[in-house]
Lab assay of single mutants.
Amino acid sequence: SIVTKIISIVQERQNMDDGAPVKTRDIADAAGLSIYQVRLYLEQLHDVGVLEKVNAGKGVPGLWRLL
């Protein structure tokens, strides 16, 4: 499923980069989806406690990390 793919992308990127959070844009590119589509999935995963959003604010790139 797309959700499983997104989780594995975040996991893979974090492992490659010493646990650093992953940008929404990088996840979207790797999943082959638009940034808006991916954001909806990321928000859902956040709501159920799978991911945390590391930063927030208007015009700030979203950074995500697995919990």
Rank of each mutant, 00 (worst) to 15 (best):
S1K: 10
S1M: 10
S1V: 09
S1W: 13
S1E: 12
S1F: 11
S1G: 11
S1Q: 11
S1R: 12
I2V: 08
I2K: 03
I2S: 03
I2D: 04
I2T: 06
I2M: 12
I2C: 09
V3P: 03
V3L: 15
V3Q: 08
V3A: 09
V3C: 14
V3I: 14
V3W: 15
V3Y: 15
V3R: 11
V3K: 12
T4I: 13
T4K: 14
K5A: 07
K5P: 00
K5R: 13
K5M: 12
K5H: 08
I6L: 09
I6D: 00
I6Q: 00
I6Y: 01
I6R: 00
I6T: 00
I7T: 03
I7F: 05
I7S: 01
I7E: 01
I7M: 07
I7R: 03
I7P: 01
S8H: 11
S8Y: 10
S8Q: 13
S8E: 10
S8W: 12
S8K: 14
S8I: 08
I9P: 00
I9S: 03
I9H: 03
I9N: 00
I9C: 05
I9V: 06
I9T: 03
V10K: 01
V10C: 05
V10H: 00
V10P: 00
V10S: 00
V10G: 00
V10F: 15
Q11V: 09
Q11Y: 13
Q11A: 13
Q11I: 11
Q11D: 04
E12K: 10
E12R: 11
E12M: 13
E12P: 01
E12Q: 10
E12L: 10
E12G: 06
E12T: 11
E12D: 09
R13W: 06
R13C: 08
R13F: 14
R13A: 07
R13I: 12
Q14S: 09
Q14N: 06
Q14E: 05
Q14C: 06
Q14Y: 07
N15G: 10
N15F: 11
N15T: 11
N15C: 15
N15L: 13
M16P: 03
M16F: 08
M16E: 08
M16C: 09
M16H: 10
M16R: 13
M16V: 08
D17S: 15
D17P: 06
D17L: 15
D17E: 12
D17C: 15
D17V: 11
D17M: 15
D18S: 13
D18H: 14
G19W: 05
G19C: 09
G19K: 06
G19P: 04
G19H: 06
G19N: 08
G19R: 06
G19Q: 06
A20H: 10
A20I: 06
A20S: 08
A20Y: 10
P21K: 04
P21Q: 04
P21S: 07
P21Y: 10
P21N: 03
P21T: 05
P21I: 04
P21E: 02
V22L: 05
V22H: 01
V22Y: 01
V22T: 04
V22W: 04
K23F: 05
K23A: 13
T24I: 03
T24Y: 01
T24P: 03
T24W: 02
T24M: 03
T24A: 04
R25H: 07
R25T: 10
R25M: 08
R25Q: 12
R25A: 12
R25P: 04
R25L: 07
R25F: 06
R25S: 12
D26P: 02
D26I: 06
D26K: 02
I27W: 02
I27Y: 10
I27C: 01
A28L: 02
A28P: 00
A28M: 03
A28N: 00
A28H: 15
A28Q: 02
A28G: 03
A28C: 03
A28R: 02
D29A: 12
D29C: 09
D29K: 13
D29T: 12
D29Y: 12
D29W: 08
D29I: 13
D29R: 13
A30F: 04
A30P: 01
A30V: 05
A30H: 06
A31W: 03
A31S: 08
A31I: 14
A31D: 01
A31N: 01
A31G: 02
A31L: 13
A31F: 03
G32Y: 03
G32K: 07
G32S: 06
G32R: 06
G32F: 03
G32H: 07
G32M: 07
L33T: 03
L33H: 01
L33G: 01
L33I: 09
L33N: 03
L33P: 00
L33A: 02
S34K: 06
S34E: 06
S34A: 06
S34D: 09
S34R: 06
I35L: 11
I35C: 08
I35E: 08
I35P: 05
I35A: 05
I35G: 03
I35S: 05
Y36Q: 11
Y36L: 09
Y36E: 13
Y36F: 11
Y36I: 10
Y36R: 14
Y36D: 11
Q37P: 01
Q37E: 12
Q37V: 14
V38E: 00
V38S: 03
V38C: 15
V38D: 00
V38W: 01
V38N: 00
R39D: 05
R39F: 07
R39V: 13
R39N: 11
L40T: 08
L40R: 12
L40G: 08
L40Y: 14
L40Q: 10
L40V: 12
L40E: 08
L40F: 14
L40M: 12
L40N: 07
L40K: 13
Y41K: 02
Y41N: 00
Y41L: 11
Y41S: 01
Y41Q: 02
Y41R: 02
Y41G: 02
Y41P: 00
L42Q: 00
L42D: 00
L42S: 00
L42A: 01
E43F: 07
E43N: 10
E43A: 06
E43L: 07
E43K: 09
E43V: 06
Q44H: 15
Q44T: 09
Q44P: 02
Q44S: 09
Q44G: 07
Q44Y: 15
Q44I: 14
Q44C: 15
L45K: 02
L45G: 14
L45I: 04
L45V: 02
L45H: 02
L45M: 06
H46Y: 10
H46T: 12
H46E: 10
H46M: 10
H46D: 02
D47Y: 12
D47A: 15
D47S: 14
D47T: 13
D47P: 01
D47M: 13
D47F: 12
D47W: 11
D47G: 09
V48E: 14
V48A: 15
V48P: 00
V48R: 13
V48W: 15
V48D: 12
V48M: 15
G49D: 02
G49L: 03
G49W: 02
G49R: 04
G49I: 13
G49F: 03
G49P: 05
G49M: 03
G49N: 04
V50K: 05
V50Q: 04
V50C: 08
V50I: 14
V50W: 05
V50S: 02
L51F: 04
L51K: 02
L51G: 01
L51R: 00
L51E: 03
L51N: 02
L51M: 11
L51S: 01
E52Q: 08
E52T: 06
E52R: 04
E52P: 01
E52Y: 05
E52K: 04
K53F: 06
K53S: 04
K53V: 04
K53L: 08
K53E: 06
K53A: 04
V54R: 01
V54F: 05
V54M: 05
V54A: 03
V54I: 09
V54N: 01
V54S: 03
V54K: 02
N55V: 08
N55G: 10
N55E: 09
N55P: 10
N55S: 12
N55Q: 09
N55Y: 14
N55W: 12
N55F: 12
N55H: 10
A56I: 10
A56P: 11
A56L: 10
A56C: 14
G57V: 06
G57D: 08
G57R: 07
G57P: 07
G57E: 08
G57S: 07
G57N: 07
K58M: 09
K58I: 10
K58R: 10
G59S: 09
G59D: 09
G59R: 06
G59L: 05
G59Q: 06
G59T: 06
G59V: 04
G59A: 06
G59C: 08
V60D: 14
V60M: 14
V60F: 11
V60S: 14
V60R: 13
V60T: 13
V60G: 15
P61I: 10
P61N: 15
P61H: 14
P61L: 12
P61D: 15
P61V: 10
P61S: 13
G62I: 15
G62V: 15
G62C: 15
G62D: 15
G62E: 15
G62N: 15
G62A: 15
L63G: 15
L63Y: 10
L63K: 08
L63S: 11
L63W: 07
L63R: 11
W64R: 01
W64D: 01
W64Y: 02
W64I: 01
W64N: 00
W64L: 00
W64G: 00
W64V: 01
W64K: 01
R65T: 06
R65S: 07
R65Q: 06
R65H: 04
R65M: 07
R65E: 03
L66D: 02
L67F: 09
L67T: 13
L67G: 09
L67E: 04
L67N: 11
